[in-house]
């Protein structure tokens, strides 16, 4: 069974820059895939297409049987709930506590708040931040912020985890810890797609590697 199918995908931005050209790939359910390449190679664009943050200029991106290019705006929120998204810049909300940051995805889906609180604590425990649930995200270190972002991405138990440079600006120890987290999720059946140029992490987790260069898949 496949989760994500891209066929002959092109993405051209206004101004003529071609970010992706003729990209075809399949990612199966439960797979762990690293998309590697230099910055500007098109890794982030690939992830954005998968999460319906952007639409392809040509070709089709099919996620869970739904064609993203043809998806109506009203359908996008429900598609996104299949994903856990981990961002390089974390995108945490600094006006609320660590706990409330993790609660956000559950609030959005109308999850019962008391039941949700249990899940949020479990997610925070998983990334080792339970003792900081009342803290403000601004007081956390870079590594902790990244782990908080991961807790928020997994709290609603998504089928697919998409992470853009999750270890981008962390030192090696932190990066290894976060890599182990992704491996754990993958072992319980979550499809993990990571865009990274961290080859150390790749060596540690032994995922399937897809390399993009200049907007094309080279291996």
């Amino acid at each position: 069974m496949t989760d994500i199918v891209l066929s002959k995908v092109y993405k051209r931005y206004a101004g003529g820059h071609e970010a992706l050209a003729d990209v075809t790939m399949n990612i199966a359910t439960g797979e762990m895939v690293f998309i590697t390449g230099h910055s500007g190679a098109g890794k982030s664009t690939l992830l954005k297409l998968m999460a319906a943050i952007e639409r392809p200029t040509a070709g089709s991106v099919i996620v869970n049987g739904q064609n993203i290019g043809a998806l109506r705006a009203q359908g996008i929120p429900f598609l996104r709930r299949n994903f856990g998204l981990v961002f390089q810049d974390h995108k945490l909300l600094f006006d609320r506590s660590v706990f409330d940051n993790v609660m956000l995805p559950l609030d959005i889906t109308g999850f019962d708040r008391r039941e949700g609180a249990g899940r949020a604590r479990a997610a925070l425990d998983k990334v080792g931040l339970l003792h900081k649930e009342k803290a403000r995200p601004i007081t956390l270190s870079g590594g902790e912020q990244q782990r908080l972002c991961i807790a928020r991405a997994i709290v609603h138990r998504p089928a697919i985890l998409l992470a853009d440079e999750p270890t981008g600006n962390l030192d090696a120890d932190y990066a290894a810890g976060i890599g182990d987290l992704f491996r754990d999720f993958n072992q319980v059946g979550v499809t993990v797609v990571l865009a990274t140029h961290d080859l150390q992490l790749a060596a540690r987790l032994q995922p399937r590697l897809i390399e993009v260069r200049g907007g094309r898949i080279v291996s």
């Binding site: 999460a51 943050i53 705006a73 009203q74 929120p77 429900f78 598609l79 996104r80 709930r81 994903f83 998204l85 995108k91 945490l92 909300l93 600094f94 006006d95 956000l104 995805p105 959005i108 889906t109 928020r152 991405a153």
Partner: peptide, 16 residues
Amino acid sequence: RDEIEVAKLIGATDGW
């Protein structure tokens, strides 16, 4: 703006 952007990214409907 940040809150709206994040909420949209993680699957909030326009109504929400």
